[in-house]
Computed example of a mutant assay.
Amino acid sequence: MKKKKVSRRALTIVSMIAALALVSVGVTVVGNDYRFVQAPIQIPVGPGQLEGVLTTPRDGDARGLVVMVHGDAAVQANPDELYSPWFEGAADAGFATLSWSKPGIGGSTGNWLDQSMVDRANEVAAVVDWARRQPGVPTEKIVLWGASQAGWVLPKVVAERDDIDAVVAVGTAINWLSQGRYNLLAELDHDGATGAERKQASADSDAIRKLLERGASYEEYRIVTTEESPMTPDRWAFVARNHNVDATADLRDAAVRNIPIFLMAGEYDRNVDIIETETVYREMFGTDLTVEHFDAVHSMARPVVDDSDFVGLIVGVFWPRALLAPGVIDT
């Protein structure tokens, strides 16, 4: 039986596919090769522990520590490696970074949905205390980096301690309820909702607020809600516990420390009213505050990767640094 000859065209196509595959692998490796060294850690907190990572500059010479304070949701120490560009930026500036998985996530014990904002602040304080006891952790200068929901945590920690040297606040809010309403309306605008849809969504939101105000049960919430994906019982309890939080008083107390505060605001933030946050921060912190605006969404990502799952996936796999808006890490 004669062997079939392979055409030059077929060989060329195969060669091109192989070359593209090699290039893709090379790009992926380079795009995910970060300028830092990372080690797993376990932080004892109360009867349990928090699982995290300590990231340091490659030369091992760090002049301080950045403590990462997560926003909402079940967040790991480095969720899908998306914090790596932040870790790298800190390392390039000569800082180590400490980040941990929320209680109940990964190897961390507990349940983050059982926490109040006071509990979260106490957790951060316990982590800082632990870090200061470790001979290999550089705590000469301590910077708190916090995103979104961390806006109700950061000022509590700063107000209670005298060893925090600076704060980086990323898309933080002031009032839980007003932030929720802003987010609702901004998402409706983004999705091109009709006037009738906006009216109905606002009415549904008002109904949930009334339930929260009178301490209604989860069963009552399930009867009233029209959400396609209703909250779980734990989530309902978490919201009920925290829905009245407002950062204003804590920000005022934190301002007494007179430390540098850096507020990062995304111009396309649909989660938080950045104008409200900036106005309150300027009133509280005065000359201690620096504000930078970026062409970014709430997470400081470029709008294009936020709006397109496909683009976000490709960029995230091959060059995750490019997920963030221009200037975010350098600034």
Rank of each mutant, 00 (worst) to 15 (best):
L185K: 06
R133I: 05
F310N: 10
V157G: 05
D189N: 14
G104F: 09
G327Y: 12
A74G: 13
V53E: 06
L324A: 04
N32F: 10
E187L: 11
Q200K: 08
L50Q: 02
S148C: 04
V304N: 13
V311R: 06
Q49H: 11
D33N: 14
K210P: 02
R181C: 00
Y268C: 04
V158Y: 00
A193H: 08
K2I: 08
Q49V: 12
D92W: 08
P103I: 07
Y268K: 11
H293D: 11
T331A: 13
W319C: 09
W100Q: 01
P57H: 05
D165E: 13
S148A: 10
N32T: 13
D165C: 09
K210L: 12
Y182S: 05
I314Y: 04
T290H: 12
G146D: 00
D189V: 13
A150M: 07
D306R: 08
P303A: 10
F238Q: 14
V128G: 04
V167F: 08
P233D: 14
R270Q: 08
M117A: 00
Y281K: 03
G151K: 03
E51N: 03
S108G: 06
G106E: 06
Y83K: 02
P326C: 10
V311A: 13
E213D: 15
V118M: 07
A322F: 13
P103Y: 07
D307C: 00
A96K: 04
K210A: 14
Y218F: 13
